[in-house]
């Protein structure tokens, strides 16, 4: 689906990512894990065109999109949901969904919104509430629903379960699996909740200090010594 080769990027003079090689296969869930400051989130931003790219290439469905601006990528079916501020808090749920279909035709928007509401029936009762008044879980679901409205093919999620209770986090993970299975969306996520995320994933990558230290089957990463030393040692404490 998307293939990244030798990507070097960062912000201005501050390089954060070094020679990243990564591939997201169509129809599989890919998860990137790594300690804080390892460049995972920066990588997602680079994919979407929100950082400065110095060299390397990003190929999406055979097209070079390395320097394509974000709104063009949206039209190509790539959605990026940042960790925070991924919905408009001053707009109602309905307005958020409508704005998500900004680039579509009027009739099509209604159709897509109905479709998104079928996938996320939880939103049906709160259509006229402001997104700012929603709970964390509801907000995350709204964000994912907006991606559905836009006819997303590749869904990039930055820590979708951050600050959610374990139960809600599980719900979000289930939805991600559902999106892949029933609606042929390819999810790519970065997760702090590393263990649980890798359990639902097919492919796992691990970043340390802006470099890829592992890339391969997700289950194998769970048992990888580097993963064990970083996460069961460091993040394990954080999670408590």
């Amino acid at each position: 689906m998307i293939k990244v080769e030798k990507l070097n990027s960062g912000y201005g003079k501050l390089q954060i990512l070094f020679d990243i090689d990564l591939e997201v296969p169509k129809g599989e869930i890919t998860t990137i894990v790594g300690p804080n400051g390892s460049g995972k989130s920066t990588f997602l931003k680079s994919l979407f065109g929100l950082t400065d790219i110095y060299s390397g290439s990003i190929i999406y469905e055979g097209k070079d999109i390395t320097y394509t601006p974000p709104h063009e990528k949206t039209k190509m079916g790539i959605s990026y949901l940042p960790q925070t501020n991924n919905v408009f808090t001053n707009l109602t749920v309905r307005e958020n969904l409508r704005i998500a279909g900004y680039i579509l035709e009027r009739d099509e928007v209604e159709e897509r919104i109905n479709f998104a509401l079928e996938v996320f029936p939880e939103l049906k009762d709160i259509l006229d509430r402001k997104a700012g008044s929603l709970s964390g879980g509801q907000r995350q679901m709204l964000a994912m629903a907006t991606a559905l409205v836009r006819k997303t093919k590749l869904l990039i999620l930055d820590e979708p379960t951050a600050q959610l209770s374990p139960k809600l986090a599980q719900l979000i993970f289930d939805k991600i699996v559902e999106l892949r299975d029933s609606y042929s969306i390819t999810p790519l996520l970065v997760e702090q909740n590393a263990k649980r995320a890798l359990e639902i994933s097919d492919i796992g990558y691990m970043f340390v200090s802006g470099r890829v230290v592992y890339g391969g089957p997700a289950k194998a990463l769970l048992n990888h010594e580097k993963f064990q030393s970083y996460f069961l040692g460091i993040v394990g404490v954080e999670e408590c």
Partner: peptide, 23 residues
């Protein structure tokens, strides 16, 4: 109006609005 909702969206969060394809 659709334009107005887009306006409010861009005022609140320009980068997200841009990602939605709003100018």
């Amino acid at each position: 109006t659709k334009f107005g909702i887009a306006l409010r969206a861009s005022m609140e969060n320009p980068s997200l609005a841009e990602a939605m394809g709003i100018n």
